[in-house]
Design a protein around this nucleic acid. Structure first.
Lengths: 146, 146
DNA sequence: ATTAATGCAAAATCTTTGCACTTTC
DNA sequence: GAAAGTGCAAAGATTTTGCATTAAT
């Protein structure tokens, strides 16, 4: 838009992130990257991301949302969290960590810190290696939201 | 089939199980109960259970399979295990325990023993209680099946 | 120019629903 | 014969796919 000044910082960051991941910085991917990574860690589904994009005035088809979520996951920008049968959640925090799942609202939250540890992790069967350990703490309750 | 003798043991067990759960012992539910509970702990999906029933010569519609799986889960005969987006697994072992998931084959297995323990379980947020803690160890590997 | 990405709508999966028919109590 | 359960096919929901168009290198 303004080419007398260099691109603003957030834009440059998004561009950089895509380049580093080896993905072409298309208009859609740049917009989604900014939505996803500019405001701390996020948990999204295809649907919520699509809605957010629309709200932000970015026109992206659902198919592209799905493509993008999976490409980002493949290159390590996102991580998929299996919480629910029939809906895929993606987390912008790709570090090893675990989750709270609020059953009432369907909201997902990282468990703060790396406190959770698993004792007596059983040995993987012959010839198998551990790809990942997922811990989900399902919460239910007198759900007055703060 | 043979009414000069009392019903055989397995049949009686299935009947008993359904009655205890407050479910009417219909032909379909009896058959599914036997398939599910007569041979140690099992992990099934709607599809695998439907196939097994068919193989066993039991005619049950898919809709009834779904109904039954959910009814059984509601009354505590089964437990749902969330492993995979887009496919629901059910476990005949309703005790507190965790799972291995073989990503290659889609097979699910209980982690033997109650060894797995979680250290530093974080406090549930205000007004929330822990409904359940799920641990899934995802395995991948030089998967030569035994 | 070449290659990759996007969008659309159609298809594929898995699951649920509505309603007539059947079975259990 | 009430009430509950079953089966079918249709409808839902989410995700994937095929292919023509558009954009990036």
């Amino acid at each position: 838009m303004n080419r007398t000044q260099g691109p603003e910082r957030p834009f440059r960051d998004a561009l950089q992130r895509l380049k580093a991941a080896g993905l072409r910085p298309t208009r859609q991917r740049l917009a989604l990257t900014r939505i996803l990574f500019e405001n701390g860690h996020r948990h999204v589904t295809a649907e919520t991301l699509h809605a957010e994009a629309k709200t932000a005035g970015v026109d992206v088809s659902l198919a592209t949302i799905y493509n993008t979520l999976h490409q980002f996951t493949t290159v390590g920008l996102l991580r998929e969290v299996v919480i629910d049968t029939g809906k895929a959640y993606f987390d912008t925090n790709t570090d090893d960590h675990h989750h709270f799942f609020f059953e009432d609202s369907g909201r997902l939250a990282d468990i703060p810190g790396n406190d959770v540890a698993i004792a007596n992790l059983p040995i993987a069967p012959e010839g198998m290696e551990v790809a990942r350990v997922d811990v989900v703490i399902r919460l239910r309750g007198a759900g007055r939201l703060s």
